[in-house]
Amino acid sequence: MAHSSRSFKTQLLRHEVLLLLVLALEIAYFLNFARNFGTPDNLSNIVRHSAEIGLLALAMMPVILTGGIDLSVGSLMGLCAVLFGVLTHDWHWASLPAAAATVAAGLVAGAFNASMITLLRLPPLIVTLGTYSLFRGLAEAITQGTKTYRSFDPAFLQLGELRPAGLPLQAWILGLGALGFYLLVHRTTFGRSFRAIGFSPEGARYAGLPVLWRTALPYLLAGGVAAVAALLFTARLRQARADAGTGYELAAITAVVLGGTSIFGGTGTVYGTVAGIAAIAVLNNGIGRIPAVLKAGIGGELASLLTGALLLIALAAPGLSKLLQSVRKRKTLPASATPSPSPTH
């Protein structure tokens, strides 16, 4: 994985520029061929429908940047939604303190992941695979699987529909989240240390960075953000149930990786993640509006297939060009060693 930093930077630039190009192509194509794609109502729907996954992706980005992963965020959404339901319905709390307590609970859950990963130095994939089951399991146990919390405070439900200054509230929150994570990752020493840890935790430790705490922070934030996503989700869907956020962890990871963050850690940008979120959201919305697809009724399936294909192409493009280069090199320099494949997942 040792590239020179300059060639790496150009490659990164290429990735994000290419992604923006894909996004622009998608939009142009859908504006022309998809039914009513460009209407203000639809554009606002695109944002509203992708807000929760978008927030999770933003929070997932620094986690992956440090070389980790968090599979538990979708399950944590379910747990937080249920907690909010318990607080407002069974304990009769007002919405505001209940929401604050839910976010606090999300942070605690994030801290749980973080402490297992940093203090016990356990692999994040396995820890969060465990909490992926545990959080969803707790949500199911609390509701005995069956209970659905309904009839929330109308003021709270407005969160799902409000449009301050003409944009849906979700757009504001997503924008704020993106800005916050951008500042954290790109404009603070903290953020730079995420990258250093992702490149080499040992190196970062020798360089005198407080690796423990700085590895922990992204997981903590992911917990808090999952709680916020759960609140938005509950307001939009008007119900809280143990199945909220099912499968969202994979959607979030997809957006982050599509956005150019290396799954091995060490490289990536927040604006790439934002572009990744947008590319997937636009594809999901637009593909089902193309008349032929509408007629066949295969919008959902096609959207998944194309997202998968886009992900593979985005990842394979630099690898393919590298492979071609190495083949060419091998022809000219038969004795030189080819680079070994990068191990791990």
Binding site: R35, H49, L237, T246, G247, N285, G288
Partner: peptide, 22 residues
């Protein structure tokens, strides 16, 4: 159209998309 996964929000999204499809 209908949900292809277990996301409980999917039906709402499809309805809201249909509204804008007219």
């Amino acid at each position: 159209d209908g949900p292809t996964n277990t996301d409980p929000a999917k039906q709402n999204e499809i309805v809201e998309n249909w509204i804008t499809l007219g």
